[in-house]
Design a binder for these strands. Structure first.
Length: 377
RNA sequence: GGAGGGCUAGCGAAGUGGCCAAACGCGGCAGACUGUAAAUCUGCUCCCAGUCGGGUUCGGUGGUUCGAAUCCAUCGCCCUCCA
C-alpha cells in the first residue's frame, strides 16, 4: 500500500484527530492544508517557498495537465514530481470537479464525460479509466477517483443517480489502477445534502477498501451550517484507519470546524485566488489590502504573522504593487495567505496534541470573526 | 501675416438638431471569489437626493429653434502647414 495513515492522538476536548500520512514522497502531519497547484505550479510561488512555509503536499489536476502539456509528456519528463521540481507529496484531482465547474461545456454519460476543451473547443472524453491512466502517468502519490460533483441545490433523484454512478466509476478506477504499490487511490463520497445518500455513497465506497476517502460535493454554494451538518453525519461513516479528505474547503473557520469533525486533509484555491485579487487572511479577519484605507499604512499585513511578507513589507507597499499590476505584489499576498493557513493548521495540530482544540477555536474566532467579516484593523 | 484643424465628465476618446448626464477605454472607489476556464469577474464613478426624482454640464458669451454638445456669430486658447 502506497499510502498509510498513522493516528497519533485524538483530542479529548473535540474529538479531532492528530495524525500522519505516509506517502512515497514523504510524510505530512494532519490535519493538513494542501495548497492547490492546478497546472503543475502553485500560482506565483516556487517549490522552495512552499517548503519554507511547511507545505508537505500539494494538489495538481488531471484535466488541466491532460489538456496541457499532456500526461504523456509529463511521463517522458520523468513524472510530475520531477517535471515541476517538487519532491514532496502530490495529490492529483481526477477532473471530477471540472464536471461541475465546466458544466456548460460537458455532457455526462455512463461511460464518462464529454468535454469541450476550455482552451480551444476540442472535443475531449474523460472516463474513470482514462482519468486513472492519466494519474498513473503523472505519478502522483494520491490519486482521486473520477467522480461527479453535483451542483447545489440539486434534487434528490438527480443526486441519487449521481451517487450510484460515482460508485460505479470508483470501482472502474480501482480496476484500472496500474500502480497500487506506488500510488494510493482515494474514493470520493458524494450525496449532496441528503443524509441517506451520503450513507449509501459511503457504504458503497468503503466496501471497496480504498486507502483514503474524500468528501466531495460540499462548499459548492450551500450555507456553512448545512455543510457542517453534512460533515456531522458523514465523517463517522468513514473508516477510522484511513485519512479523510474534505475537498475544496479552505476558509480558516471551516478548516477548524472541519478538523473538529474529524477531517484530516483539506485543499482549496481560496487563499491563492483571493491573494491574486488583493485580499489577505489575517489573525483579525479578512483584509482587502487594495482598499484605499491602506494607502499610507506602513505596518505589516498581520502584526501577528512572521511570514516572509509580513517580516519585510508594508500594507502600503503591497497595495501599491497590486494597484500597479506588479507581479511581486500578488506573490507577496500569496505567500502570506498560504503561510497563514499552513500555520493555522500547525496551531490546530498543537491544540489537538494538548486536548484544547475547542478552546483554540473560541479564541481564534474571538479575534478573527467569521471569514466574511472584515474587521479592517 | 496667411491657410487649415481642434477645444466633450479626473485622463484619452465617440457623439455633429430631439432616443444625451453624454458610448467606449483608462484611472479611481467598492464588492465577489472555497477539489482554479479566475493576476478574474461584477457594480459605482458631474452635484444633491440616493427607490422615485431634482439640479448644473460638452472652452466663454450671445443668437437661431418647440428643442443645441450638435446650427450661426463672436471672443479666448491649443495644434499643423505656408511665409
Amino acid at each position: 500500500m502506497a499510502i498509510k495513515y498513522e493516528l497519533i492522538k485524538v483530542c479529548k476536548q473535540s474529538g479531532a484527530r492528530l495524525g500522519r500520512v505516509h506517502t512515497p514522497h514523504g510524510s505530512f502531519d494532519t490535519p493538513a492544508f494542501m495548497p492547490v497547484g492546478t497546472q503543475a505550479t502553485v500560482k506565483t510561488v516556487s517549490p522552495e517557498e512552499l517548503k519554507a512555509m511547511d507545505a508537505g503536499i500539494i494538489l495538481s489536476n488531471t484535466y488541466h495537465l491532460f489538456l496541457r502539456p499532456g500526461h504523456k509528456l509529463i511521463e517522458r519528463a520523468g513524472g510530475l514530481h520531477r517535471f515541476m521540481n517538487w519532491d514532496r507529496a502530490i495529490l492529483t484531482d481526477s477532473g471530477g470537479f471540472q464536471v461541475f465547474s465546466l458544466s456548460a461545456m460537458r455532457k455526462i454519460k455512463e461511460e464518462g464525460v464529454e468535454f469541450r476543451s476550455h482552451l480551444n473547443g476540442d472535443r475531449l472524453f474523460l472516463s474513470p479509466e482514462l482519468a486513472t491512466e492519466i494519474q498513473n502517468a503523472l505519478g502522483s502519490d494520491i490519486m482521486m477517483a473520477f467522480d461527479e460533483c453535483p451542483p447545489y441545490p440539486a434534487d434528490y433523484d438527480y443526486v441519487k443517480q449521481s451517487v450510484e454512478r460515482t460508485s460505479r466509476w470508483a470501482e472502474r478506477c480501482l480496476k484500472a489502477h496500474a500502480r497500487p504499490d506506488d500510488q494510493g487511490l482515494f474514493a470520493i463520497v458524494q450525496g449532496g445534502m441528503y443524509e441517506d445518500l451520503r450513507r449509501q455513497s459511503a457504504a458503497d465506497l468503503t466496501s471497496l477498501d480504498f486507502p483514503g476517502y474524500a468528501i466531495g460535493g460540499l462548499s459548492v454554494g450551500e450555507p456553512k451550517d448545512v455543510m457542517y451538518e453534512v460533515l456531522d453525519y458523514t465523517v463517522p461513516l468513514l473508516p477510522a484507519d484511513k485519512p479523510r479528505y474534505l475537498m475544496g474547503v479552505g476558509s480558516p473557520d471551516a478548516l477548524i470546524e472541519g478538523s473538529i469533525r474529524g477531517i484530516d486533509m483539506f485543499d482549496c484555491v481560496l487563499p491563492t485566488r483571493i491573494a491574486r485579487n488583493g485580499t489577505c487572511m489575517t489573525s483579525r479577519g479578512r483584509l482587502v489590502v487594495r482598499n484605499a484605507r491602506y494607502a499610507e499604512d506602513f505596518g505589516p499585513l498581520d502584526p501577528a504573522c512572521d511570514c516572509y511578507t509580513c517580516r519585510n513589507y508594508s500594507r502600503a507597499y503591497i497595495r501599491h504593487l497590486i494597484k500597479a499590476d506588479e507581479t511581486f505584489g500578488i506573490r507577496l499576498t500569496t505567500i502570506h495567505n498560504l503561510h497563514f493557513l499552513l500555520k493555522l493548521m500547525q496551531d490546530v495540530r498543537q491544540a489537538i496534541m494538548e486536548d484544547r482544540l475547542l478552546d483554540f477555536r473560541d479564541r481564534f474566532f474571538a479575534e478573527y470573526g467569521l471569514f466574511d467579516n472584515d474587521k479592517g484593523f
